[in-house]
Design a protein around this nucleic acid. Structure first.
Length: 737
RNA sequence: GAGCGAUUAGCUCAGCUGGUAGAGCGCUACAUUGACAUUGUAGAGGUCACAGGUUCAAGUCCUGUAUCGCUCACCA
C-alpha cells in the first residue's frame, strides 16, 4: 500500500534482502536452460557459428565442503562465463568433482578407525570402497548445492566425476597408449614411501617439515661421518668423497678398506663422486642407496649394491643383526648405546635442525624405499603426432618435458600473472620421472595384468590365470586428462571438437605443478593441442591479518555463512575486488558487509530510476542536452574500461570500476542532478533525461551482472518489458561502448 | 642454498607501457528522512623501505642494501 508511488513494484519497498531472491533466481536460470550453450543456440541467444568460450571447473575434492578459496574460484570463473555468454559466444562451463584418491581414502579410513576401531586390513577392499562411495556421494551433493548458492552458471547436464564411466575409459585408454609408446614403464626405483598409509607418494605431495634431531658423528675406519639416521647405517659399505678433495687424495676410487662397524667388521669401498660436498662436515659420507634419494643416484652412477635395511612398515631387516624386527623409531637409542660402547660415537650435536619429509595427504613420515612401480618417462624422445602446439610439427622428435616448455614458451598458453611462467619452467627443469602407481584401493585401477612374471597392459583381462595389478593410479594422472575427458575424449565428440582447447583454466597458484603442468603434459601428448589458452592463477584467501585460514587458528570464514548474512553477490564481490591474480587476498567480514551496502545502493538506484521513468513515452525521440550527452559518454567509457579489464583478466579492476561508476558517478551525481529536471516544467528536458536514466540503469545492470548476478537479475525481472532486450538478464546483450 | 614476490595514508591494498600521489575501511566537521535499516559534502593524514644511477621528469626503469613472505632444493 503506497498511495504516493503507485509505479514502484512492491518488491522495492524494503531494503534488498538477498535471502528472499537468490534461490528463486537460480531456479529461474536453471529452468531457462541457458547454462547449456546448445539451448542458447537453439533460442537465438548465441549464433550457431559463434566463437566458443569454455572453462572446465577445477573439480573440488570430495573430501569435504567448499571453503573461501573455492568461493573465489567460482566467482572468478562465473564472471568470465557470464561476460562471454552476454557477448554472444557459445559459452560452456563444465562442473565436476574429484575423487582425490589418496586424500579421500585417508579421510574415510580415519573416520572408520575413530568410530569403529577398524584398520584397513580388517575392513577389506570391497567394504572400504563401499564406505568411500557413500561418503563421496554425500560430499558431492553438499558441494553441488554450495556451488549453486554462489550463483555459478554451470551446465549441470555435462557434470563429470573423475571416477565415472566416461572418465574411467579415458584413463584406461591413456595408460595403454602411453605404455605402448614406451612413455610409461615399470621399474624398480627409489620412491617416497609412506609407512603409515602403506603407499607411494609423488614428489609434489611430499611436504618438508622442520625438526630438530641429534646429529651423530661416527668413527668409520679412518673417517668421520655424520648422520641423523643411525638406524639406516647398517648396510653402509660405501664411503664417498669428492674427487678433488685433497685431504683424501691418498684414497683411490674403488679401493677397499676394513672398518669396524656396528655389528662387526665390514669391507668398505671408496667411491669418488662429486655429490660429496667438501665443505660439508668432514667431506666424507657413507651412503644408504635403498633409503635415500641422493644415495640412490650415487649408487646408480657407480652401479653399487642397494641393500634394504628397513621394510615397508618401518621395521629393521636381518641386516640389522640383533636389532632386526625392531621399529626404526624405537631402535635408534639402542643402536647409539651399542655404538657408544664400541667407541664409534665421536660426538653428538643436539641442536641440529633439518627438514623431514612427510606425506601432505594425511599420512606419516616418508621413508624412501626402492620399489617396483609404474613411471611416466618425461625425458624419453618420441615422434610427435598431429600437432597444434606452436613450434612443434608432426613428426618432430620431442620429449614430454619439451612439450610442456614449448606450449608456454611459444605462447600457446599464457599464464596470468606472467611471473609464474618462470616458476613453471624452473619446475619442469627439475622434474624427475613421475611415479604414477599408488598402493591404495580407491582410484583408477591400473590396466596391467600379471601372470608368472609376465606383464600385459590392456584394458580387459587377457584371460584365466592373469591377475590385475592391485595398485591404483595417482589421482593427478586422471586429473591431467580433465579438459579432454570432460569433453568426451578419447571419442571425437562434437563437444571435444567445439570446446577444446578450452579458453581458460582458473585455479590457485599452489596447484600449478600438481595439476596445470600435468594437464599440459597429458593433453599436448595425446591431442597435439594445449588444454587451455590461458591460465589464471588466483591467490590464497587469507584473514585480515594475512594469516592462512585454518581450523587451529579458528579464523575460517565459511562461504555459506557469509552468503546467509550478506548475500552471494556481496560475498563474490569481496573476493574479487583487490584480488589481483597470483596475489593472496585478505578477507574480513567488514569487506563483505561493505559490498552488501553496495547491493542496497544498486537496489535504491534502481528504485529511483524505475519510479522516475514510469511515465516516459519511449516512442518519442529525445533531444539530448550537452550534459545528457556527457552522461551517456561517461557511461560508454565505463563500459569500455570494464570490458577491456575483463578481457585482460583484470577482474579486480573491472569490478572496482563498475562499483565506482555506479556509486559515485551515477548515484551521487547523475541521480542528484536529475531530480529537478524530472520534477521541472521542461517536458522535453525531462523526457531526454528519462531516456538517459533508463540507459544508465539498463547498462549498469548489464555491467554489474557478471559480478553480482542475483541482485541485477532480480531488478531486471521488475523492469518494464519495453526497455529490455531479453526477459532474462543473464542472456541479455553486453552493452556496446 | 637457489628462485620469485612484497615494502605507498592508522589498517587492507590500487597505481597498466615513467610526467609532481589514489580507493575502501577507520577518523574529524557539517548537512540530510531523502531513491538509500542511512546517505551526502568537506577535511585531516604519505620525504611512495634505504642508498646510488638513467632521464627535462621516477612509487613507476636500472644497480645495490635492509626487512618480511612464498616456492623450490638430495645438504650427508
Amino acid at each position: 500500500m503506497n498511495e504516493e508511488k503507485p509505479n514502484v513494484p512492491e518488491v522495492f519497498l524494503t531494503p534488498y534482502d538477498p535471502q528472499q531472491h537468490e534461490d528463486k533466481l537460480y531456479e529461474l536460470w536453471e529452468k531457462s536452460g541457458y547454462f547449456n550453450p546448445d539451448q542458447c543456440v537453439e533460442n537465438g541467444i548465441a549464433d550457431p557459428e559463434a566463437e566458443p568460450f569454455s572453462i572446465v571447473l577445477p573439480p573440488p575434492n570430495v573430501t569435504g565442503t567448499l571453503h573461501m578459496g573455492h568461493a573465489a574460484m567460482l566467482a572468478i570463473e562465473d564472471i568470465l562465463v557470464r561476460y562471454h555468454r552476454m557477448k554472444g559466444k557459445r559459452t560452456l562451463w563444465i562442473p565436476g568433482t574429484d575423487s582425490a584418491a589418496l586424500a579421500t581414502q585417508s579421510k574415510v579410513e580415519g573416520i572408520m578407525y575413530k568410530e569403529e576401531k577398524k584398520r584397513r586390513d580388517e575392513i577389506g577392499r570391497e567394504e572400504l570402497l563401499k564406505r568411500i562411495d557413500i561418503f563421496t556421494e554425500e560430499s558431492k551433493a553438499t558441494i553441488i548445492s554450495q556451488t549453486k548458492k554462489m550463483g555459478s552458471s554451470m551446465d549441470w547436464s555435462r557434470y563429470a566425476f573423475t571416477l565415472d564411466e566416461t572418465r574411467y575409459k579415458a584413463v584406461m585408454e591413456a595408460f595403454v597408449r602411453m605404455y605402448n609408446q614406451g612413455l610409461i614403464y615399470r621399474g624398480a626405483r627409489i620412491v617416497n614411501w609412506d609407512p603409515a598409509m602403506q603407499t607411494t607418494v609423488s614428489d609434489d605431495e611430499v611436504e618438508y617439515v622442520e625438526q630438530a634431531d641429534p646429529f651423530y658423528y661416527f668413527k668409520y675406519g679412518p673417517f668421520t661421518i655424520g648422520t641423523v639416521r643411525p638406524e639406516t647405517k647398517f648396510g653402509d659399505k660405501y664411503v664417498v668423497m669428492h674427487p678433488d678433495d685433497k685431504r683424501y687424495a691418498e684414497y683411490k676410487h674403488g679401493q677397499q678398506i676394513e672398518v669396524e662397524w656396528i655389528n662387526g667388521p665390514i669391507t668398505a669401498t671408496i667411491i669418488k663422486d662429486e655429490a660429496a660436498d667438501p665443505e660439508m662436515g668432514t667431506g666424507v659420507m657413507t651412503i644408504t642407496p635403498a633409503h635415500s634419494l641422493v644415495d640412490f643416484e650415487i649408487a646408480e652412477r657407480h652401479n653399487l649394491d642397494r641393500e634394504r635395511v628397513i621394510d615397508e612398515r618401518g621395521l629393521l631387516l636381518d641386516i640389522a643383526g640383533e636389532f632386526a624386527g625392531q621399529h626404526i623409531k624405537k631402535a635408534r637409542a639402542a643402536i647409539i648405546a651399542k655404538m657408544t660402547e664400541k667407541g664409534l660415537v665421536e660426538k653428538i650435536d643436539d641442536k641440529y635442525v633439518h627438514n623431514i619429509a612427510t606425506n601432505s595427504r594425511g599420512g606419516g613420515t616418508i621413508e624412501p624405499q626402492i620399489k617396483e612401480q609404474w613411471f611416466i618417462d618425461v625425458n624419453k624422445e618420441f615422434a610427435m603426432g598431429p600437432s597444434e602446439v606452436p613450434g612443434v610439427k608432426e613428426g618432430d622428435t620431442v620429449t614430454l618435458k619439451q612439450l610442456m616448455i614449448k606450449s608456454v614458451e611459444n605462447a600457446g598458453i599464457t599464464i596470468f600473472p606472467e611471473r609464474f611462467e618462470r616458476v613453471y619452467y624452473n619446475w619442469i627443469n627439475n622434474l624427475h620421472d613421475w611415479c604414477i602407481s599408488r598402493q591404495i584401493w580407491y582410484g583408477h585401477r591400473i590396466p596391467a595384468w600379471f601372470n608368472n612374471g609376465e606383464i600385459k597392459v590392456q584394458t580387459d583381462s587377457p584371460g584365466a590365470g592373469w591377475t590385475q595389478d592391485p595398485d591404483t593410479l595417482d589421482t593427478w594422472f586422471s586429473s591431467g586428462l580433465w579438459t579432454m575427458s570432460t569433453l568426451g575424449w578419447p571419442e571425437q565428440t562434437e563437444d571435444f571438437k567445439t570446446y577444446h582447447p578450452t579458453s581458460v583454466i582458473e585455479t590457485g597458484y599452489d596447484i600449478l605443478f600438481f595439476w596445470v603442468a600435468r594437464m599440459i603434459l597429458m593433453t599436448t601428448y595425446f591431442t597435439g593441442q594445449v588444454p587451455f589458452k590461458n591460465v589464471y592463477l588466483h591467490g590464497l584467501v587469507r584473514d585480515d591479518k594475512g594469516r592462512k585460514m585454518s581450523k587451529s587458528l579458528g579464523n575460517i570464514i565459511d562461504p555459506l555463512d557469509m552468503i546467509g548474512k550478506y548475500g552471494a553477490d556481496a560475498t563474490r564481490l569481496s573476493l574479487i575486488v583487490g584480488a589481483a591474480p597470483g596475489n593472496d587476498m585478505p578477507l574480513n567480514e567488514d569487506k563483505i558487509r561493505g559490498y552488501k551496502k553496495f547491493a542496497n545502493k544498486v537496489w535504491n538506484v534502481s528504485r529511483f530510476v524505475i519510479t522516475n521513468i514510469s511515465d516516459a513515452d519511449w516512442a518519442q525521440t529525445p533531444k539530448f542536452s550537452d550534459r545528457d550527452e556527457e552522461i551517456l559518454s561517461e557511461l560508454r567509457a565505463t563500459v569500455a574500461e570494464v570490458s577491456n579489464d575483463i578481457e585482460k583478466f583484470s577482474l579486480y579492476l573491472a569490478a572496482d570500476k563498475a562499483y565506482h561508476y555506479i556509486w559515485h558517478n551515477l548515484a551521487d551525481q547523475v541521480l542528484e542532478e536529475s531530480k529537478p529536471i524530472i520534477n521541472g516544467d521542461d517536458s522535453e528536458a525531462k523526457l531526454a533525461r528519462q531516456f538517459v536514466l533508463k540507459e544508465c540503469l539498463v547498462t549498469s545492470l548489464k555491467l554489474l551482472h557478471p559480478f553480482m548476478p542475483f541482485i541485477t537479475e532480480t531488478i531486471w525481472q521488475e523492469l518494464p518489458k519495453a526497455i529490455k532486450d531479453q526477459d532474462i538478464l543473464m542472456v541479455a546483450k553486453w552493452p556496446e561502448s
